[in-house]
Design a protein around this nucleic acid. Structure first.
Lengths: 125, 125
DNA sequence: ATTATTGTATTAAGTGATTAATACAATAAT
DNA sequence: ATTATTGTATTAATCACTTAATACAATAAT
């Protein structure tokens, strides 16, 4: 479940991305309470301070909020979540095409590779 | 030219990727001599030690080699370079589809988004 | 022969990320 | 009322990355 962190990016940033994906994908639903910091830290096998840092940043971005001693919750702003999902998807795509371009693939060549990949996928490989 | 490093990944790793792309794309040709460590360090605006570390790793991977006091060169192994290029392209693609899947897009939905993106690109946006 | 250029190694200092060990305030649960 | 649970803050120690300042050996250039 946890602990496949790249040694090369600060853990708290990797956690931010991971949780952002959970919220954007709907795996963590809007308005839903999330586990206490200490338990999340255990689940992710990191120090509570590190988890706290990640959650504080996500709160700064508006994706979660805190009720003083009750706990933390996913935002109830469905539009925000939807926007984040769209933005992430666009980022991933642009980053992908940009990398392929640096490798020397133009857009047509990149499309060709994608189509081959998808074809093989559909054949169950 | 340089100095747009993400604060979140060690610089020497970013340099490794950058140079690997240059070699894989053919921007740095096989067999070609590369600039001295000190000059590359200046071009990339990093410390010579940091550049040396990146180059040492690239040498370990076989992408460059050193002639004692003459300098460093891109490998002459065209097949290796071609393989690296193919591997990188595959990695980028798989990573992209994996991220999209985590966002809740299945392969068909991802293809739809790609096609829209490419269409807009062709219209010159 | 001498000089300049090449890669390489060493030592020291500064910075940020991470863990660890606590502690505290507010409130929900008993 | 008391206790447990919640988020949060603090201090210290460790580790990797990065820069800086040198120094050295081998060889190409002069």
């Amino acid at each position: 479940m946890a602990n496949d962190y790249s040694a090369n990016v600060p853990i708290y940033l990797q956690i931010i991305n991971e949780i952002k994906l959970k919220i954007a994908s709907g795996e963590w639903k809007t308005g839903q309470r999330i586990l206490p910091v200490r338990e999340l830290a255990m689940q992710f096998t990191v120090n509570p301070n590190t988890m706290q840092r990640a959650l504080a940043e996500l709160e700064r971005e508006g994706l979660i909020y805190t009720e003083r001693t009750t706990g933390k919750f996913v935002t109830s702003d469905d539009i925000l979540v939807s926007n984040v999902r769209d933005m992430l998807a666009r980022e991933y795509m642009q980053s992908f095409f940009s990398s392929m371009q640096k490798l020397g693939y133009n857009m047509g060549q990149t499309m060709k590779i994608i189509e081959d990949y998808v074809t093989k996928y559909k054949e169950g490989k």
